[in-house]
C-alpha cells in the first residue's frame, strides 16, 4: 500500500500531506508540516514530550497512527499564542521560571491547555494529575504546577 493523503485541521488551518503506512501523528506534525514544538522523547508514550490536543483531548502523538485520524482537528503549541501574544499559560511559565532546558515545555503546556479547557478552576491535585504523563528532568515540577495554577487564575474573569 502506498502513502496515503491525510487531511487534518491543524491549529485551525486545513492541512493536507502524505503519510507512509504506520507514520505517527508526531512524525507527520514535525516532518510533513514543520511543526517542531512536539518532541520525540521516547516513542513509547512514557515521557509526554509529544503531547498535543487531538479533537480537544491530550494525546501522546507518537502513539497515534495518523491515517486513522484523517479529518480530525489537532492543536499544537504553535497554535497557542494569539496574534503573536503569549497566552496565559505561556506567560505564566515564562514569568514563573517554569522552564529550564525547555524539552518538556511544549508537552507540559499542551497538557495544561487541555486541563484548563475543561476545568478553569483546578486544584493543585487536578494540575498534578494533568501533567502526570509529562516527564521533567530539570525543574522538579514545583514551578510548573505553580505556573499552571497561576495561568488558571489569570484566565478566569
Amino acid at each position: 500500500m502506498a502513502s496515503q493523503v491525510v487531511n487534518l485541521r491543524v491549529n485551525e488551518r486545513s492541512r493536507e500531506f502524505l503519510a507512509a503506512p504506520g507514520t505517527s501523528l508526531l512524525s507527520s506534525l514535525r516532518d510533513a508540516l514543520g511543526l517542531m514544538a512536539a518532541k520525540r522523547g521516547c516513542a513509547q508514550g512514557s515521557c509526554g514530550t509529544c503531547t498535543v490536543l487531538l479533537d480537544g483531548r491530550p494525546v501522546m502523538s507518537c502513539l497515534v497512527a495518523v491515517e486513522t485520524v484523517d479529518g480530525a482537528s489537532v492543536r499544537t503549541l504553535e497554535g497557542v499564542a494569539r496574534d503573536g501574544e503569549l497566552d496565559e499559560v505561556q506567560a505564566a511559565f515564562l514569568e514563573g521560571f517554569a522552564t529550564q532546558c525547555g524539552f518538556c515545555t511544549a508537552g507540559m503546556i499542551m497538557s495544561a491547555e487541555a486541563l484548563l479547557d475543561r476545568n478553569p478552576d483546578p486544584t493543585r491535585e487536578d494540575v498534578v494529575e494533568a501533567i502526570s504523563g509529562n516527564v521533567c528532568r530539570c525543574t522538579g515540577y514545583g514551578p510548573i504546577v505553580d505556573a499552571i495554577l497561576d495561568a488558571a487564575a489569570r484566565r478566569r474573569p
Binding site: 491530550p58 494525546v59 494529575e129 504523563g133
Partner: peptide, 11 residues
Amino acid sequence: RSIASPAIRSL
C-alpha cells in the same frame, strides 16, 4: 485514574 496518564487514557 490509577492507569497511566491523561494523554494515554485518551487513547
